[in-house]
Design a protein around this nucleic acid. Sequence first.
RNA 1: GGUCCUAUCGUCUAGUGGCCUAGGACGUUGGCCUCUCACGCCGAAAACACGGGUUCGAACCCCGUUGGGACCA
Length: 481
Amino acid sequence: MKTSDVRVRFAPSPTGFLHIGGARTALFNWLFARSKGGKFFLRIEDTDLSRSTEEAIDAIIDGLSWLGIHWDHWEEETTTHPTRQTARLKIYREKVFELLDRGRAYLCYCTPEELESRRKDALAEGRVPRYDGRCKNRTSPIPGRDPAIRFAAETTGTICIDDLVKGSVTFDASIMDDLIILRSDGTPTYNFCVVVDDVDMAITHVIRGDDHLNNTPRQVGLYQAMGYPIPAFGHLSMILGADKTRLSKRHGATAVQQYRDEGYLPEAMINYLVRLGWSYKDQEIFSLDELIEKFSLDQVGVSAAMFNPEKLKWINSHYIKSLPAKDMAVSVSPYLSQWGVTPDVIEKERLEKVIVSLQERSRTLVEMAESAACFFLEEILLDEKALAVLTKESLPILNAVLDCLFKDQDALWDHAFIKLALDEVGILLGLKLAQVAQPIRAAVTGKTVSPGIFDVLHILGREKTFKRINMQIERLTKSVA
RNA sequence: GGUCCUAUCGUCUAGUGGCCUAGGACGUUGGCCUCUCACGCCGAAAACACGGGUUCGAACCCCGUUGGGACCA
């Protein structure tokens, strides 16, 4: 096979948001395709009508787009939307009847109630509950009942899967049940649809979560019965929450969109996800090009991995530090409104300066926006710590600062000038810079934490600096009197 | 319950029979730098689940036990 013939897919059920585990499965598929020069498709497995929603489809598409995971257009798709199984119901039925004609499927008239009671009996007697095949040789229908259609499984021998991740996995064919492929209401079942779709889409490598590993022998049986070539399989281990159970809603944030909302960059998410279960020597940080070049399924780990939000945060801080301020400006702008900064007051040039001063101090875009807000707002609020710094003892300092900073109205308002002025205050009052800087910081930012004080005043500008220091002088003077 | 997968610091992992007194990263922690907070730099603590084999030699190969996960119900 030419490497360019590689075709993979991500096939989520649209029953909720795009979660972390799904995103990683999509990512590994996408990286595999990109690294082999192959195709990556998206397929929506929405046959479970009761749980599938349009919102969930939108959320999956939205999440993948945010991550930058773009899928290829399947040749037989007539629209730009990804293929949905509900659009293919007719095809599944045709395939079911094909199997029936070949004698590899049969009509089953057992009712769910009958099946359930036999299952209970089996359990009570300590037997493994499975279908007993009683309808297999039935020659006449049961009047008044709609039959389901069962696959006549091969139950002798073994089924061996040479898994790209797990290695060789062997199943005894005797465990195989005659599974229902078409329900009595005419809807096809999961394992059957997957096989038909993967065949039609000419999927060469089925890369999915290892929760599907036990489904694989059934599907292989179906491939064989229908006379189709069997694709390669690669089963990825699960992502676990802090309690070592499969990551789910109980563990807090599991939707990728939630991480976007909390101020994570897609670059960081990708980098974190790819290192969860995959490694390349001791390297932690990878560009997209590096990933495509270096990704390989045989470096993917076999055991489940725990999701670690702390490491994600570290990787996020790494990207916040290293991305160009211009790009960061685009990324952080939407978050500023949370802190009362409307787009009309954001000056691009000032924003970029603010970002440079905050890149080494922010772990998320939300944190960055919070720290940046005071540079744009007209009115700021002082937090508790800032109020505690601004006592009546700081009044002479603020007065001296105002004197030294504004005695020469024509001076160039730059870093050097501000440093000189504050040094002068220190000498005048016999104080260290730390003692001078902190009250100013509190007065102009409303916080006790900020970038370097010279940068803060420089970026804030002469006018806002004066206004804010003056306001605190007035307030303190009043409270003293 | 049956079947399948799995087991290296708290976490993600390197390790493919001698390079291992087990390496890196996050986190934790001590220090340096310092106008606050960070960043950065230097250091520390911290792991081969257990028991049997195979071998001159095992984190690595085999078997079992225990633990964890998933699927089927």
